[in-house]
Structures are given as structure tokens and as C-alpha cells.
């Protein structure tokens, strides 16, 4: 099954990349942009989607500083943590 994992910096943790993008957009004429956050998108083909949550906790995300969200791409509902 195809699974997508979205990893984001936790709320309240400074994201320097997001700040850089937020500061760059007005220079291109795009106003009204705030709170830009940059994370990571990981897609995997897995036999057992039930293992993905543990994969996230052990490797794909660092739960101390990142939130992750698992989306099952074959139609079923995802879980977030």
C-alpha cells in the first residue's frame, strides 16, 4: 500500500526555513503571507500500514520537535499524531 507521511516542525518551535521563505515572498510582490512552516513529505510502499506509526516514532520523525501525519493513499482514512 502507498503511504504518505507528512512531518512538520511542532507548533512553537522556530522554523528558520519558513522564516526565510516568508521574508522572500514580499520581495516578489506577494503580500499577506504569514506563518510559513516547512516540513517533509515521505512516500513509501509498505506491506503493513499498521507499522508506519512506529516507523515515524523511531526514524521518520523526531517526536520531540516534529509532528507527523500518516495518510493511506489507497482511499482509507489517515491518522495524525
Amino acid at each position: 500500500m502507498r503511504v504518505r507521511v507528512l512531518v512538520r516542525p511542532k507548533a512553537g518551535i522556530l522554523d528558520p526555513q519558513g522564516v526565510a521563505v516568508e521574508q522572500a515572498l514580499p520581495a516578489l510582490g506577494f503580500g499577506g503571507v504569514t506563518d510559513v512552516r516547512i516540513g517533509r513529505l515521505i512516500e513509501l510502499e509498505v506491506d503493513d500500514p499498521a507499522q508506519v506509526d512506529e516507523m515515524c516514532r523511531k526514524l521518520l520523525a523526531n517526536p520531540l520537535v516534529e509532528d507527523y501525519e500518516v495518510q493511506l493513499l489507497d482511499g482509507a482514512a489517515g491518522t495524525a499524531s
Binding site: L14, P16, Q17, A20, N62, L64, V65
Partner: peptide
């Protein structure tokens, strides 16, 4: 830190 032997994490420098 990643191995859990020390507390905390190291993030990107604020000066980028």
C-alpha cells in the same frame, strides 16, 4: 540525542 542517550535535539541555526 537521536539515540536517546542525551536529552533534547539540535535544530537548524537561527541564522540559517
Amino acid at each position: 540525542c537521536e539515540a536517546g542517550l542525551l536529552p533534547g535535539a539540535l535544530l537548524q541555526n537561527t541564522n540559517r
